[in-house]
Design a protein around this nucleic acid. Sequence first.
RNA 1: GCGGGCAUGGUCUAGUGGUUAUGACAGCAGGUUCCCAACCUGCUAACCCGGGUUCAACUCCCGGUGUCCGCACCA
Length: 570
Amino acid sequence: MSGRRVDRLTSILRRRGIVLPSFEIYGGVSGLIDYGPVGAHILRRVMDKWIDHWTSHGDIVEIDSPTITPEPILVASGHVSEFNDLMAECGGCGSAFRADHLADGRHEDPDSLDADAINAILDAGVKCPTCSESKWSDVRMMNLMFSTRIGAMKGARVAYMRPETAQGMFMLYPVLFRHFRQRLPFGAIQTGKGYRNEISPRQGMIRLREFNMAELEYFIDPEEPPCPDLSAWGESVSFVPDPDGSHPGMHAMTFSEALSSGIVRHPTVAWFLARTWDFLIGVGIDSTRIRFRQHAGTEMAHYADDCWDCELHGEYGWVECVGIANRTCHDLLSHEQHSGSKLLRGWRQYPEPRTEIKDVLAPIGAVIGPVFKDEAGAVMDALKELSEIPDSTPFTLSLADASSVEITNEMVTRRAEEVTVHGEWFTPHVIEPAFGIDRIIWHILDHGFTETEKEGGEYSIMSLDQTVAPFDIAILPLFDKDGMGDIARQMWASVNSMPGVRGEIDSSKSIGRRYARVDEIGVPWAITVDHTTLEDGTVTVRRRDDQEQIRASVDEVLSRLASGEVSSLF
RNA sequence: GCGGGCAUGGUCUAGUGGUUAUGACAGCAGGUUCCCAACCUGCUAACCCGGGUUCAACUCCCGGUGUCCGCACCA
């Protein structure tokens, strides 16, 4: 066997129509891929399984929103300002660099500078690392979002292809809050395409410009975070905590231990780490090649308070495939501020209504009005907003527009008010597990790709979990004559009539070659119709992973297949 | 985005300034065999794109695109 394993795997993916470059007859486009007839079904099953995994919780529902997103949403989320880099080009040799990196050492925090400030620093004599010249172009923004316009001509609005599906869930928060009858916690999931105009996509399906995302936003009351029981997860898992924190290094422990030791800081986050583990195991990821890595403070995304990556190990090393972030109240609060909506809150009911006696300064409109005239409204508002009541008058009151006025004794009456408060509004926090589906599928294929030898020849088996295999079963007539082909076709029709079950039929070439073909794309079971079938209605059932075979009646095989229990025949 | 390597049927590849452009595997048709890629016969099918040099370019040159390696980047 020659060459690299990754090349042999990629070659199979192309040859068998699993995953391949898009638009190839026009030369291809870097960072865009197609799922072919075999791969698309794997993708569909992984997606379906993901949706089922979360919606089975009961307090999580699926939504679906547009990929085209008007600019203001992404301004509020921070993507327009944060999701880009200033780039500078050398006039001497044409090399391009991140401008803030060029300014390193000439400013304590180059990342915070705007374009003009960086231009000034560069022109002050920064030399090109490549050619040592100092002729810089003006720095320009490279935003990693694909921009577009909604509508035509002058009326068009600026928009972007969404860089994440999450914003759709935030936009629907009021609907979700109503759907769940105003009780936290609850969650929403969305699957679909996300877009990033990567500077340099590499590594096949790992860095894509258009990719399949699957995200969950779980809204919680930060004062009462859900603390599910983690004792059900007994396995030892690899954790790589923040290297700058108090637990550097690699730790193997249970989810429960990771939480109690303080490595995972938030109980709800710990629970999502465990549920993420369940999903990955369920789609056939090798448990020994999963680890959870905590982001260091310096690499935290602009919105995240605490962040874990679930990394999978494969041909490209450890690759981030799931990000689990505590986004706190960042998104909902920012959307509240930018949109003015008051609907992005949760209600926290007190166990007992609280009766509070509050000192209040009640403004006397009859005095304030004539004194302040146009400003009177602002003064009244400012008085109502006062959090601390001054002990005496007169005092200076700051208005919303930053001016201030003097309030004298005649303008207000001081009195104690009794108010009964039943609860309070707050901005929910959100825990977000975000899955990169294409990366997960790559690792499913990578972990499943098994190269062995058979009678001295090279032989490859794709050991996929049967729930994500492109076909559930292959039906192979030993010969396409004497009625064997007819029986096979009848069985094929029966199989395909089962909900969610798909079969493949193949009658060409030798039986060994047909086994090889279905092994290569990961079909877990093969049944062979032979002469004995004609006599007693039994077929052989072959197990892909060890090529064991047993004999069973057609009816038995079909009923086991319908219930997903073919393995119980062995 | 930078630098370097590479680009030939579905896959992996040989090769040349003028060829009918290798071979293997896969695929298709027929024959034979039949529970693990057997064999025989036949067939299908390729020089990344655009310019240039030349009588003639798949081959040489330039540009683009893709891909790989390194650097940079990476919610």
